[in-house]
Simulated scan of single mutants.
Amino acid sequence: MTVLAHDLEHEDAFLADAQQYRRELLAHCYRMTGSVHDAEDLVQETYLRAWKSYKNFQGKSSVRTWLYRIATNTCLTALEGRRRRPLPTGLGAPSSDPVDDIVAREEVPWLEPFPDDATDPSAIVGSRESVRLAFVAALQHLSPRQRAVLVLREVLQWKAAEVAEAIGASTAAVNSLLQRARAQLDAVGPSEDDVLVPPESPEAQDLLARYIAAFESYDIDKLVELFTADAVWEMPPFDGWYRGPHEIVLLSKTHCPAEGPGDMRLIPTTANGQPAGAMYMRNPETGVHEPFQLHVLDVGADGITHVVAFHATSFEKWGLPDHL
C-alpha cells in the first residue's frame, strides 16, 4: 500500500468516526447562533475544516474535543458583526394590546426553533435544558465569546484551561468572561425555580392534547383554562408579545385567520426538548391544510406558562408532511 493510499484510508476512517458527533455539534452551533439553518451550515464547515487539517491532528485530545474546538471557532468567526437573534420579548418593549394591529418585522433575524432527534430519545433528554428556548434566547444577550465560554464550561463541563486553549485566550480571561456571562444570564435567563414538565410526561401530554383540541374545534375560550395567570404568548416575525390568558385569547380571536372548526389542524411533536404542535391552516381556495405555525410550549406545574408560535413554511425538519 502506498503512503498516499494509507493516509486516505486513515482519513476516511477518521471522518466516518467523526460523523457520530454531528447531532451534538449541530446543537452546539445552534446554541451559539440561535439558528438551526446557520447551525447546519456551520457543522458542514466544521467537518470541512477538520478534513483539511486532519494531518495536523496529533491525538493530544479526543476527536470529539477537537471537533468542538473547530466548531466553536467556526461559530465565533461567523458571528463577527452579526446581530443577535431575539424573541419579541427580548426587544425590550412592554406587552402589546391584543386588538392593535400586529406588525411583522421581517428584517429582524429571529431566534429559530430546534427540531428534536426523534431517532434518539436519549439525546433529547440529555440536551433538553441546554436547547430549551428560554436558555438559547438568553444566550443571545451575551457576546459571542461569552456564549462560547459559558456553553463550553457550563454545558459541556470543560475545564477553564481547555476553554482557554480552544478560543485562544488566557485562563484568567476565560474566568472573567464566564463571570460576566453568568451575571448577564441571571438577569435575562430562566429562573432556577422555573422547572419545565418533560414533554413525554402525562401532564404535558394532556395539556398539549387539550391545547390542540381547543384550536381544532375553534373553541378558543377553552385556552383560558390551560394558561397560567402570567402566561406569555409571542409569535415572531410579529414583534408584539402578550401576557395573561384573556389577552392571549383576545389576540387569537382578533387576528387568527381561522373562521371555524376544522380550519386548523395540529400534529403533536417536540421542539427544543419541549412539547410542540405543528399547526396547519386550511387554504380557503384549495381546501388543503398548509404549514402555518409551530407552537412551542413551556409547561409548568400549573399549566402552560409560555408559547412561542413560530411562522412556518415547512415542517420538513420535524419529519412532518408539507400539507394535510
Score class of each variant (00 low, 15 high):
Gly303Met: 12
Leu91Ala: 05
Tyr47Phe: 05
Ala183Gly: 12
Arg182Tyr: 05
Thr46Ala: 01
Leu133Ile: 09
Glu45Gln: 05
Asp194Pro: 13
Thr119Leu: 05
Arg82Ile: 07
Glu112Thr: 12
Pro268Leu: 00
Ala138Arg: 04
Pro88Phe: 02
His295Arg: 01
Glu112Val: 07
Pro275Trp: 09
His306Val: 04
Leu320Ser: 14
Ser201Arg: 14
Lys52Asp: 07
Ala301Arg: 15
Cys75Glu: 07
Thr65Leu: 12
Asp322Arg: 03
Glu259Lys: 15
Lys52Ala: 02
Val103Gln: 12
Val163Ala: 02
Met235Val: 01
Ser127Ala: 02
Gln293Ser: 11
Ala166Phe: 00
Leu142Trp: 01
Leu8Tyr: 10
Tyr211Ser: 10
Val63Ile: 12
Ala118Trp: 09
Asp101Cys: 14
Leu152Ser: 11
Asn283Val: 01
Pro202Ser: 04
Trp110Cys: 01
Gln58Ile: 03
Leu67His: 14
Glu40Arg: 15
Asp193Cys: 14
His141Met: 00
Ala71Gly: 15
Leu142Glu: 08
Ala258Lys: 11
Val63Asp: 07
Gly92Trp: 09
Thr313Trp: 09
Gln140Ala: 03
Leu185Ile: 03
Arg105Asn: 06
Arg147Val: 00
Pro245Ser: 11
Asp17Met: 03
Pro236Tyr: 01
Cys29Ile: 05
Leu42Met: 01
Thr74Met: 06
Ala13Gln: 15
Ile124Cys: 10
Ala309Asp: 02
Ser191Glu: 04
Val174Met: 06
Pro275Arg: 11
Asp117Phe: 03
Asp41Tyr: 00
Ala231Cys: 01
Val163Ile: 10
Lys60Trp: 02
Asp38Pro: 15
Pro98Phe: 09
Leu177Gln: 02
Arg153Cys: 03
Asp322Gln: 03
Gly34Glu: 04
Ala18Gly: 09
Phe57His: 03
Leu250Gly: 08
Val197Asp: 13
Val232Asn: 06
Gly126Gln: 07
Cys256His: 14
Gln146Asn: 07
Leu4Gly: 05
His289Gly: 10
Lys159Gln: 15
Ala148Ser: 14
Ala161Arg: 07
Val36Gly: 05
Tyr280Gly: 13
Leu207Ile: 03
Val63Met: 06
Leu8Lys: 02
Val307Ser: 03
Asp219Gln: 15
Gly189Lys: 05
Leu152Arg: 12
Ser127Asn: 08
Ala204Pro: 08
Lys55Val: 11
Gln20Lys: 12
Ser62His: 01
Glu106Pro: 05
Ala169Tyr: 06
Pro88Lys: 03
Ala172His: 04
Val131Cys: 01
Leu79Met: 04
Leu48Asn: 09
Glu24Gln: 12
Val197Thr: 08
Val103Tyr: 02
Ser170Asp: 08
Asp12Gln: 15
Val174Thr: 13
Glu285Ala: 05
Ala123Glu: 14
Pro268Lys: 07
Ala213Asp: 10
